[in-house]
Amino acid sequence: MAQNLICIVCPRGCHLTIDENKNVSGNSCPRGVNYAINEITCPKRILTSTVKLVSKSLARLPVITSEEIDKNIIFDVMKELNKVEVKAPIKMHEIIIKNVLNTGVNIISTREIIE
């Protein structure tokens, strides 16, 4: 049976339809096809959050997964993030957790902290 999805790859939010043979329609760009197929087989998400930061100016360091992770492990990754405490200075895109939960995905910083 065909399924209707809303593409979340970009803010455009295309209304997609995917049928049982994995034919995708309604997409405005090729990324919509990958999204729809992933979404019905193994849904993935980018996770953004913060970790504890010791610095003069800020209490939290924003971080992101270097790639998408399986949707069903999001809360497990959140638990790992809560164990971390980092100290300034931090470079942009510095690795904060390498290969989190053996996913092959790193947690990296999304802000530069000078002191």
């Binding site: 999805l5 809303i6 979340i8 790859v9 970009c10 803010p11 939010g13 998400r45 949707k71």
Partner: peptide
């Protein structure tokens, strides 16, 4: 945005 309904609420 539609994408936020999906990834913030439906998820």
């Amino acid at each position: 945005l539609n994408r936020n309904i999906v990834q913030c609420l439906n998820d």
